[in-house]
Amino acid sequence: MNGVHDMGGMHGFGPIPIEENEPVFHEDWEARALAMTLALAGWRRWNLDRSRYAREALPPESYLSMSYYERWIAALVDLTVENGLLSREELRQGRPSPDAEPSKPPVTADRVREILARGGPTAREAPSTPRFSVGDSVRTRNIHPAGHTRLPRYARDKWGEVVLYHGAHVFADAHAMGEGEQPQHLYTVRFSARDLWGDQASPRDSVHIDLWEPHLNAR
């Protein structure tokens, strides 16, 4: 979606807010927001791509006015309702519905480290032979889907060169929308900074972006 999350190249955000000796969490509630996000993923009602899409789908005004973990918690609440873990009435009341059967959490403390160690690898069997090879010139497609996409706006309809091939991976654009994994070949494409940003960019510089085959056309 063409949302405010797709920030590459935007102006107006000011200097980088660098903080010396920054703590891992600035507030206790941030740590709890992170932990709840990770723990609820254990229900497997949504995937990581879907959670990214839920954050992108926050109203643009809210997205920009919220801090990082405020976005996480807002998107998490939306996902719990969308996927039937909580009801709107329960949120309004702040307690479980009287007729809700208490559940058993899928992630218990003793399993946390094992679950984190396993992670969620996205590499899959290749569905076909890759269409492109390292060194190929490719042009990104000019797409503007209302749903999730990992092709940033600043890199659409641009020439680039394939510099790495990573095998087939879960296709985030489809996975986020509940359309299954649809594995696709994944490449890193190098774009010259001048092709993206014009003459103000250094002729030596480049931006490397991971893109799936459906994002790319041949020369």
């Binding site: 932990a35 909580l86 329960e90 307690r95 208490p102 559940s103 992630v107 403390a109 946390v112």
Partner: peptide, 26 residues
């Protein structure tokens, strides 16, 4: 945000959707 997170956490714990000890471990 602090109140929002607190309300959500107590709702999730009371409904048995998250294990409070698992949160501490994360």
């Amino acid at each position: 945000p602090e109140l929002r997170v607190k309300t959500l956490e107590s709702l999730l714990v009371e409904k048995g959707l998250v294990d409070p000890a698992a949160l501490e471990t994360y």
